[in-house]
Structure formats: structure tokens, C-alpha cells
């Protein structure tokens, strides 16, 4: 049997194709961003580093404290045993803060440097939902990693400090609240860094900016405050300082410090959103 090419049939098939199937959804974007986060090796080693730094420094500090500690000294310092536990459990997170700041910048600057951002924005032409999904995913996982780090560090410290008959309960509000606060601030640093990365669009520039704000700014403002007295009043409003005050309030209430931290994050993300929406990809 011979095959006949039917030209009229071909012409008949040329009615416009109508697409079908599921559309864009925020749940889908969250899943997409989670896939993006967990399919890069750097995510595993940065999060591992946060946990390792926290555990490692907790062990060191716990031993150091139990070695050099005697009851009258701590009493003189005004620290009770729960205070020591919180100090030990959260000491390593300072390093973790720098690591998640880098992770936050890279999560978006990596898309710009590789060109991935074009794929992302072509799929989400309204753009902002993609940014919010990235922020939500990074916030959630960084919070969990932070909580795992501090709670783990606390548990590690129990047997070591126990040799000096120091004890504390994880569910004591003076323990669990500072630990949660530390994990929360860690996650907010990551989110703040996503904003800076979006604004700067380059890994090197973004990392330099974020680390400058976290590390350098307190030092610089501190030095200025020696020359100009009123500059010292600015200190508590710096991102890093407000983050610390959130957990151990001194010049302002915890909730006030929390609002200051949120303001930093809001400015970073607000500027990022405005630029992302406006700029050519």
C-alpha cells in the first residue's frame, strides 16, 4: 500500500494550538526555590559549616568555662547558670551569621552571574513572587538550621558544664527564648543578604556590602563615637547591634530591637523589589 501525503489534512491541522495544563502558583514557586536551594552543593557545605562552627565553638567554650570557672567569679559577673548555657550555645552562631550572609547573597547573585535569572524571570514575568518565594524558602531553612545549631550546642554543653554542677533546662524561658531569637536573627540576616544581592547583582559586591554592614559598620561607628559624642546613640540602631539587643536587651526593649532589625530587612527587600521590578533582566 502506498502512502499518500495529504496536503489538505496538513492545512487543516493549522488551527492555532491551544495550551492546556496547570499554571503559575505561589506553592509551585516555593517548591521551585526549594529545589534550587537544595540542588546546589554550596547549600550543603554552607549549612554544614554553620552547624559545625556552632557545635565546635560550643565544645571549646564549655570546656574553657568549666576549666576556668569558679562560683564566686560567675556570681561577680552577674551570670547565672542559664546565662552560661545560653552564652555557650549561641557563641558559634556569630560565625554562622557571616556564612548565611554569604549564602543569602549567592542565592540571587549566582542567578545573575550564571544567567539563570533569565530563566527564572521568563517563568515568573511579574518577578516579585519569585523574590518572595526565594526569601520565604531561605528564611525557613536558615531558621531551622540555626535552631538545630543552638539547640544541639546546648545539648552538647550539658555534660561538659555538668562536671561543674551547672544545669539548665532547654524549656526554661530564659534559655529557649534567646535560642529562638538567635535562630530568628540568623534567618533574617540571610533574608537581608538576599535583598542586598538583588540590588547589587554581583557576588563579590554583594558579599562585600553585607559583610561591611554586619562587621565593619559597628567598628566604624564605634570609632566615630569617640570623636563625636552623639554618634554613640546610633550604635544600637545598627543591624548587628539591634540583633544582639533583640536577644539581650540593654539600651532598648527586645521588641524595639526586633523592629529595628525588621526595618533593616524591609529597606533591603523593598529596594530589591523596586529594582527587580524596574530593571531589565
Amino acid at each position: 500500500m502506498s502512502t499518500v501525503i495529504n496536503s489538505t489534512q496538513q492545512a487543516g491541522a493549522r488551527t492555532p494550538f491551544v495550551p492546556t495544563g496547570s499554571g503559575l502558583s505561589f506553592i509551585g514557586l516555593l517548591r521551585s526555590e526549594a529545589i534550587k536551594l537544595w540542588t546546589l552543593r554550596s547549600t550543603y557545605w554552607t549549612f554544614s559549616l554553620v552547624v559545625a562552627a556552632s557545635f565546635g565553638i560550643a565544645v571549646l567554650m564549655a570546656y574553657a568555662m568549666s576549666a576556668g570557672l569558679d562560683e564566686p567569679a560567675t556570681a561577680a559577673m552577674g551570670i547565672d547558670s542559664t546565662g552560661i548555657f545560653v552564652l555557650v550555645a549561641t557563641a558559634g552562631l556569630g560565625l554562622g551569621q557571616l556564612i548565611v550572609a554569604v549564602l543569602g547573597v549567592l542565592s540571587i547573585s549566582g542567578e545573575y552571574s550564571s544567567g539563570m535569572i533569565k530563566s527564572t524571570l521568563a517563568a515568573v514575568p511579574n518577578r516579585l513572587p519569585a523574590l518572595w518565594a526565594k526569601v520565604a524558602v531561605l528564611f525557613s531553612f536558615t531558621f531551622l538550621v540555626g535552631l538545630f545549631s543552638v539547640v544541639g550546642s546546648f545539648l552538647i554543653a550539658i555534660p561538659i558544664l555538668g562536671t561543674k554542677d551547672l544545669t539548665a533546662s532547654l524549656f526554661d524561658e530564659h534559655v529557649i527564648l534567646p535560642l529562638l531569637g538567635n535562630a530568628l536573627f540568623l534567618a533574617l540576616i540571610a533574608v537581608f543578604a538576599v535583598g542586598i544581592g538583588t540590588i547589587v547583582r554581583s557576588s563579590a559586591g554583594g558579599i562585600a556590602t553585607v559583610l561591611g554592614i554586619i562587621l565593619l559598620l559597628p567598628t566604624v561607628v564605634g570609632l566615630f563615637s569617640m570623636l563625636v559624642g552623639w554618634v554613640a546613640d546610633i550604635m544600637p540602631f545598627l543591624f548587628t547591634m539591634a540583633g544582639a539587643e533583640m536577644i539581650t536587651p540593654s539600651t532598648m526593649e527586645s521588641w524595639q530591637a526586633f523592629l529595628v532589625v525588621l526595618a533593616w530587612v524591609a529597606v533591603s527587600l523593598g529596594a530589591a523589589a523596586a529594582l527587580l521590578k524596574r530593571r531589565d533582566a
Partner: peptide, 13 residues
Amino acid sequence: YNHLRAMAATHSI
């Protein structure tokens, strides 16, 4: 594979 999976997830493909 993971790139395509991430792209597909946005539209629940």
C-alpha cells in the same frame, strides 16, 4: 535534570 525540575515546579508541571 534539576534545572528542568526547578523550572517545571513553578507551573506544577
